[in-house]
């Protein structure tokens, strides 16, 4: 006699479905609370696999489940492929609109009045906003469609922080924000994928600008991580609207926006932080937020320095 004992852990609804399924297949079900955790629902069962009446349905069911898993995986790849194609198709005409807008704005097809120029400029800015959202969806689809590989090199954060500032300088000026960056002297170079770090930092600084009212402050620091000095901790803090602690986990999830009014006020796909977290985790680092409603936000992430890399390499 072979005894199979299976404990299922998960949301109540899933456990319920599996319980039904197993009952239909003729298994004797036992409730168990050995785990002691109230958050999880646990279902256990014993089955005598030597008896044909249990063995056949179980094997059939396993095969079915395997097929379902394969179908779902294929569907997920197809979904990512679809997102990639749609994003590409959306981006192409938008690129044409931006280019035509710039041709008109720069007076290549005839002189434009200051008010016309202003109107064209608004059109171009809106298109660029739309394009950056499409880029974000595209990046997300790519990070899901296949494993992305890092191309790490050693580089100084100071230069990258300056680069991301330059990318956002006009927005910072427009809102008259007080921007300050402090990269600790003697900070070792990080060992990371430069493009991805720019993406993460760009996202955090972009959010800080979006969610901070005019005249507010945005502050970027980089220093050795307190819990392991061979890692570098980058922090972007702002004096903006802040985030309720109950939403701190949710904002790193795909397609999450704290509430619809915020989404309307602050454009965005809800993918930025999910992508940022993915990129940071690929480096073995972590990303988190400290914030209270109305008290500004402080986002931090860690990256390995070349010193951590040497240790990893030696291990």
């Amino acid at each position: 006699m072979i005894e199979l004992r299976l404990y299922l852990q998960g949301e109540g609804q899933d456990a319920e479905r599996i319980r039904d399924l197993l009952s239909r297949e003729g298994f004797r079900l036992m409730e168990s609370s050995e785990d002691g955790s109230e958050a999880r629902s646990v279902v256990g069962f014993d089955a005598d696999l030597s008896s044909g009446s249990h063995r056949e349905p179980l094997l059939r069911r396993i095969e079915e489940l395997e097929r379902t898993i394969l179908e779902l995986r294929n569907l997920d790849v197809a979904k990512s492929q679809f997102l990639t194609n749609v994003s590409h198709e959306l981006r192409t005409p938008l690129t044409a609109i931006v280019t035509y807008g710039e041709i008109l704005r720069d007076g290549l097809l005839g002189e434009v009045s200051p008010r016309q120029r202003e109107a064209i400029e608004s059109m171009i800015n809106s298109c660029r906003q739309l394009l950056s959202m499409i880029e974000e969806i595209l990046t997300y689809a790519r990070t899901n469609a296949r494993a992305i590989t890092l191309q790490p090199t050693p580089f100084d954060l100071e230069e990258v922080v300056g680069h991301v500032y330059e990318m956002n300088a006009s927005l910072i000026r427009q809102k008259n924000l007080h921007y300050r960056a402090e990269v600790g002297s003697g900070l070792p170079p990080v060992w990371a994928d430069r493009d991805k770090v720019i993406h993460v930092l760009g996202n955090l600084i972009g959010n800080a600008i979006d969610f901070t009212p005019s005249e507010g402050g945005v502050h970027v620091t980089a220093r050795r991580a307190p819990e392991d000095p061979r890692w570098v901790q980058v922090t972007v803090s702002d004096t903006g609207i802040g985030i309720d602690p109950e939403h701190h986990e949710m904002i790193f999830q795909e397609f999450a926006q704290v509430d619809a009014s915020r989404a309307r006020m602050h454009h965005g796909t809800g993918l930025g932080l999910a992508i940022a977290r993915k990129f940071v985790q690929l480096h073995g680092g972590k990303i988190w937020v400290d914030s209270e409603l109305g008290a500004g936000s402080r986002f931090s992430f860690t990256l390995p320095s070349v010193e951590a890399q040497e240790t990893l390499g030696a291990a």
């Binding site: 590409h88 981006r91 690129t95 710039e102 394009l131 595209l138 990046t139």
Partner: peptide
């Protein structure tokens, strides 16, 4: 598109002399 799409090194290795990402600033 963005740098993530085609990596710049592959682009240079194929013989391109320069590289701009869309949307192009005129």
């Amino acid at each position: 598109g963005r740098a993530l799409e085609v990596d710049q090194e592959a682009c240079m290795a194929a013989g391109c002399t320069g590289y701009l990402t869309k949307p192009i600033d005129t």
